[in-house]
Design a protein around this nucleic acid. Structure first.
Length: 573
RNA sequence: GCACCCGUAGCUCAAUUGGAUAGAGCAUCGGUCUACGGAACCGAAGGUUAGAGGUUCGAAUCCUCUCGGGUGUACCA
């Protein structure tokens, strides 16, 4: 049950004469301050102006009409015209009791209409090891996919691999001119990465020869040159295997991994169709679409006849629309491609794809402490593998010192879960468009607003059940009455029931940090409860059962929420 | 030059999109313990939301200008 949605509909029915129901509903929201209750309706002030009435009187009138039974008593009119709602304890108790046996924690209700969403994320270039820059897209995209799935939407996770671009031309050049056969034998991906870096360095150093040679290799590859195609086919499995290993460690999966190469056969048709419809035109030898005459056009065929990523992206939209008929396509990509997507979406709309909601889920570049793009001291970008290893090693130190009683295998497992959780959470708990300052300390932190804090709260709850020799399933089956006489109990209860509305908001805003904020708040409320309300030594059997139930619901919510962030929990840590 | 993004506590970030006294974490200082796990809890201090105007019941949020930073800007992806 989505409490906010329910309240919105109830207040919607009480919209004053002449007011906009939608606007009035949207003005219902959780209270920022508990002293104003649990939820508040703020629509009266805005309406008062358009209707030419006194906002407090309007609020008083709504108060009389609105029917909050049995969730709450009549709302309270406060300030200039706020309507404050406080959920009834009996209602909260009953709702929690229902949640107790519900594996979906209240998400399985009728809810909003289900849609199909394609999430295009991670999308690394193959043949280059993944680095910290790939983390954001991978982790944010995975989390958004999980959130939409949890809400019952149909999700297509698509890894749009960069397996066809000019970086392959550079590798081909490197292979033909500088390969180390033994190194390739030993570790193909490392050798290919070395060749790529070598080519890049030469080009950056002003070597026009390498630049042209690389481009020529790319053209040959695209033109079905047998040798280059053969090399591509040889390299790809190694590259994909290395990527798959990384995704497995991260716990990220895809439904499809259709790279740029997949769309290659469709590109000439795309250009032809756009030209035939008069959307594309020739300019300076290239085929382009002018989205805005004053600005640079969107190029779909270069003057040398080759296609570029804009063409591929259009073919991709066409394919996705045909294959899945999505309502929404999310592109989880660095904000520096904002202009590209703006143009791409405009061209797609002109082309007829005006029903699908195309969204660029942009995020900031990762910077070092010096505010320049993040590098190690050696000048290389930090590899994702070594970042994860570092985080896990850091976690291992803490586990070793705090829990020497766990056997080494289990400590290793806990360290992996805690370390990866820390890294993912550091990325997900902040979702600003502005650039992101990479900070080892923050990445590896395990105090405060971190995944570790949430995992710790979970482990403490499991510990209660272990110590009390109680099985959570038994508590769930008993469905004890939930007593909310202590403020900490009530605070916890009011948060547990918010999960569905939080997920809806996170999905609407495309912001996983809404989930992290919620979970941190929940864990905080639990810590307070844990300090102030003894569970196993509660003063009565009824109270003990009630608190066990509250603890179990909190644990299940934490586990569920962390899972939506791609983060695991452990029973002991 | 033009376009877009950003500027919030010492640092890293929130603020449910115009709501009530701008909140967290880290760092600093002080407290809590025979504990159902101290990877915790409580408290203090820290702010003219870059600056100046404007819009209105109400602005970190919207508008204008100024200052500062970032990104993009015709054949890389």
């Amino acid at each position: 049950m989505n409490v906010l949605e329910k309240l919105r509909s109830v207040f919607g029915d009480a919209t004053p004469e002449g007011g906009d129901r939608q606007v009035f509903m949207a003005a219902v929201r959780p209270s920022g301050d508990p002293k104003f209750g649990d939820y508040q309706a703020n629509g009266c002030m805005a309406l008062a102006k358009t209707l030419g009435k006194n906002p407090r009187e309007l609020a008083a009138a709504v108060r009389e009409v609105v029917d909050l039974e049995p969730m709450a008593d009549k709302p309270e009119v406060a300030g200039p015209g706020f309507l404050n709602v406080r959920l009834r304890d009996e209602w909260l108790s009953r709702t929690l009791a229902e949640l107790l046996g519900d594996a979906s924690l209240g998400l399985s209700g009728p809810g909003t209409t289900k849609k199909t969403v394609v999430v295009d994320f991670s999308s690394p270039n193959v043949a280059k090891p993944m680095h910290v820059g790939h983390l954001r897209s991978t982790v944010i995209g995975d989390s958004l996919a999980r959130i939409f799935e949890a809400l019952g939407h149909r999700v297509v996770r698509d890894n749009h691999l960069g397996d066809w671009g000019s970086q392959f031309g550079m590798i081909l050049w490197g292979w033909k001119n500088a390969r180390d056969a033994a190194a390739y034998e030993a570790d193909p991906v490392a050798e290919l990465a070395r060749l790529y870096r070598l080519a890049q360095e030469r080009i950056r150093g002003g070597d026009k020869g390498v630049e042209e040679a690389g481009r020529a290799e790319t053209v040959k590859l695209h033109a079905a040159d047998p040798e280059n195609r053969e090399l591509w086919r040889r390299f790809m499995p190694h590259c994909l295997k290395a990527l798959a290993a990384m995704y497995q460690r991260l716990g990220v999966r895809f439904d499809v991994e259709l790279g740029e190469s997949f769309y290659d056969p469709m590109l000439s048709d795309v250009v032809e169709d756009l030209s035939k419809r008069g959307i594309a035109e020739e300019s300076e030898g290239a085929v382009v679409v002018f989205v805005d005459r004053k600005k640079a056009p969107f190029i779909i065929r270069k003057s040398d006849g080759a296609f570029n990523y804009g063409t591929t992206d259009l073919a991709t939209i066409q394919y996705r629309d045909k294959t899945w008929g999505p309502d929404q396509i999310l592109y989880v990509v660095d904000h520096r491609q904002g202009d590209h997507f703006k143009q791409l979406f405009a061209v797609a709309r002109a082309w007829g794809y005006d029903k699908v909601d195309l969204q660029h889920v942009a995020f900031g570049t990762i910077l070092g402490a010096d505010r320049k793009p993040f590098k190690t001291k050696q000048g290389d970008v930090v590899g994702l593998e070594s970042l994860l290893d570092e985080a896990v090693a850091e976690a291992r130190k803490v586990v070793d010192s705090n829990s020497p009683d766990l056997d080494p295998d289990e400590r290793a497992r806990v360290a992996e879960v805690v370390g990866l959780g820390a890294v993912k959470y550091a990325d997900l708990s902040q979702n600003r468009i502005s650039d992101y300052v990479f900070d080892w300390q923050k990445m590896l932190a395990m105090n405060g607003n971190t995944a570790t804090y949430l995992q710790y709260a979970y482990a403490r709850i499991q510990s209660i059940f272990r110590r009390g020799e109680v099985r959570p399933e038994d508590v769930r089956r008993r469905r004890p009455a939930i007593l909310l006489s202590h403020p900490a109990e009530r605070g916890l209860a009011a948060r547990v029931v918010r999960l569905p509305e939080v997920l809806e908001l996170a999905a609407a805003e495309l912001k996983p940090n809404i989930v992290t904020d919620y979970l941190f708040d929940l864990a905080n409320a639990f810590s307070k409860f844990f300090e102030e309300c003894p569970v196993l030594k509660a003063e009565s059997a009824e109270r003990r059962d009630s608190r066990l139930a509250l603890a179990d619901l909190t644990a299940e919510t934490l586990k569920f929420g962390l899972n939506l962030l791609g983060i695991d929990v452990v029973d002991r840590m």
